[in-house]
Amino acid sequence: MTAAPLLDVQNLEKSYSIGRTGLFSKRSLKVLHDVSFSVAPGEVLGLVGESGSGKSTIGRAILRLIDSQSDVMRFGGQDLNSISTVQMRSLRKEMQIIFQDPYASLNPRKTIRAVLSEALDAHGLHKGAARGPRLIELVTLVGLDPSFLDRRPHEFSGGQRQRIGIARALAVEPSFIVCDEAVSALDVSIQAQILNLLADLRAKTGVSLLFISHDLSVVRYISDRVMVLYLGRVMEVGPADQVHFSPKHPYTAALVSAEPSLHRESRRIRLTGEIPSPLALPSGCIFRSRCPYAQPACAETVPPLQTAGDQHQSACLRTDIL
């Protein structure tokens, strides 16, 4: 992956204001701290972390569905931080999103034809006579029958709806798709079908994915690289198999070992304590309050991401443990 990155993000931060403390001052809750990463053309970057770690926030910030602050946010050579609204609208064709909940992500009042047409209309694609064939092409691409076009979402199963959501994202031929827990709500046998579909589409169209999931095995299978997030900070990032099979950060190690698996050999690493409230984060290493290896020094400095192998980085002060 030496090509110029398709997406480059440096020091992404996001705060939500939560209530007021005085008449004019607001209390704010910082949910992303200093997140930096890049995605190469055709690459799948996996994003894992527990709920509330900020995975979805990152995806929405990149798509500019929510406001955020960053030093650099470039997509395909364009600076997203200074882009005009008009330019952003045409750039939306390049960046799409697939959602977690196949039931909430489709407008219950629209037929599948209308759902897909909205995508094409938004960018004036395949107008007139070209529309029909394109719609058929799209539903066939995601493995559905063209006769489904004139039905409404409630007539479909979760897996079929998820395919429609994928077809909607693909309709405008994007070069980048955020998959936010795109397979999490599906049953295993359907989940495997959708994962294979995404892998095929990636191979066929060269689309890049930001693949968000809390399921580490799914992320390992589909991603080239994996980034691990804890309370809005990057803990570890590296090639998928390396992060999964030889994690360098105690948090990743704990996550992997907590995964239920059919054949467990290694002992589970027990984390003590609960995830701290985002309003009262520990000083120094954010993972300190649950880390089995924590030392007094961990309370002093925020560990920076350090090289821990080929393309592999980890944010832990102790390099002697894993």
Partner: peptide, 11 residues
């Protein structure tokens, strides 16, 4: 999500 999807599409 479907409203967010429309926004993401640039509608």
């Amino acid at each position: 999500d479907f409203v967010e999807a429309s926004r993401a599409l640039g509608t």
